[in-house]
């Protein structure tokens, strides 16, 4: 059986080997087989050639460790590493991104190099997903945001950053749109206004919350997911509402149910 590698970003950071196809792996990680678990899972498929690029992970004997069960069924998950995984996997090995709803529906997003040509002015709302997960507002567009937060010259930086761009539509009075489910909308509005009022010499990013979003963020994604470091940025563009409703109706129905 072919061994595949997955880097899970949420619920927690891990590199996992498995005989399962990505969709089956996502369903398994979301709902399990016997434990009746349920919850969001976000993971990348990783190019098996990653072992040639880094010696951080012990995968030489993976063929002996990741073997099918005695009854011939595939090995569902063999953990290779947990904690500080993303920083040791170079940008080039990240394949498709898979978003799994709590009940195990999986959506595949293909990545592409981010060209910055749809950058928008104004403040964005980003949920960082890996390695840490604060909710921030920023005047920086995704590519610059990724570069600044992974810049070694910056005293507070991460080697690599994975985040999602969230909707923060506001009315003419600066109030967040009513359909946005954030738990403390007035605080988000204050943070956005503070950034908008600040001059170019002032800070470009402000933390809104240090804890991850408690509620489902899948239905409020704006442009998509971004993975970046000093070498570049990959964008995993989120489908339009029409595409979601027609081509991925089951996934979308599940993702927007909560």
């Amino acid at each position: 059986m072919q061994i595949r590698y997955y880097m899970m970003c949420s619920r927690f950071e891990a590199l996992i080997a498995s005989h399962l196809e990505p969709e089956a792996f996502g369903t398994y990680m979301a709902v399990g087989t016997k434990k009746l678990a349920s919850g969001h899972v976000t993971f990348f498929e990783i190019d098996p050639g990653f072992a040639r690029l880094t010696d951080h992970f012990q995968v030489a004997d993976i063929e002996q460790r990741c073997v099918p069960h005695e009854d011939g069924s595939p090995k569902r998950s063999k953990y290779i590493s947990v904690y500080r995984v993303m920083e040791f996997l170079p940008l080039s090995v990240y394949g498709s991104l898979y978003l799994t709803t709590p009940d195990g529906r999986v959506l595949k997003l293909d990545g592409e190099a981010y060209e910055n040509n749809d950058e928008q002015d104004g403040v964005s709302l980003y949920q960082e997903l890996c390695p840490l997960n604060p909710l921030v507002v920023s005047k920086l567009a995704p590519a610059r945001f990724a570069r600044v937060l992974t810049d070694p010259a910056n005293p507070v930086h991460a080697p690599r950053l994975f985040f999602v761009d969230l909707q923060a539509d506001r009315d003419e009075k600066g109030r967040l749109a009513g359909w946005l489910p954030y738990s403390n909308p007035m605080h988000i509005e204050d943070c956005i206004q503070e950034l908008e009022r600040s001059g170019p010499e002032m800070k470009a990013t402000k933390t809104v919350s240090r804890t991850p979003l408690a509620q489902n963020f899948l239905r409020v994604i704006r442009r998509g997911f971004f993975l970046g470091d000093q070498s570049g940025v990959k964008c995993y563009r989120f489908p339009t509402r029409d595409e979601l409703e027609i081509r991925h109706s089951q996934w979308w129905h599940s993702a927007s149910a909560q």
């Binding site: 749109a177 009513g178 359909w179 489910p181 738990s183 909308p185 509620q215 239905r219 927007s256």
Partner: peptide, 12 residues
């Protein structure tokens, strides 16, 4: 229908 945070919000 989209007020007070809609589905998934604390109000919901």
């Amino acid at each position: 229908d989209g007020i007070y945070g809609g589905k998934g919000s604390e109000a919901h």
